[in-house]
Amino acid sequence: MNLDWFRQHLLACPFKYITGFDCPGCGLQRSFLELLQGNIKDSFFLYPALFPILITFIFLAFHLKFRVPNGSKILMGLIIFSSTIIVISYILKEVQFHTTM
């Protein structure tokens, strides 16, 4: 798979372009690229919420196709879990960034 094409065509974050601050979604594409290359550790440290998000989408497709019993409740739990991880990891990343600068 030619990952160089992806690496040159990532979507830039307008918020980071203007202010220089990360937004809560920054790092998702880099993290996904690292995951495609097999670097699970780098991928996790770039964007820890990638795994819950991927699991949520895979489960969503599975649930819509096969109608898992109580699937909607499981999906809701997964969504709340991943949004919590997004918020916590973003706060930790910003705190770490501003204390080390």
């Binding site: 937004c23 979604g25 949520t56 909607s72 999906l75 991943s82 949004s83």
Partner: peptide
């Protein structure tokens, strides 16, 4: 129903 579920998930994941 399906569309609402997908919208709800994308509302959280897609930043901004």
């Amino acid at each position: 129903a399906t569309l609402v579920l997908v919208m709800g998930i994308c509302a959280i994941v897609i930043c901004g």
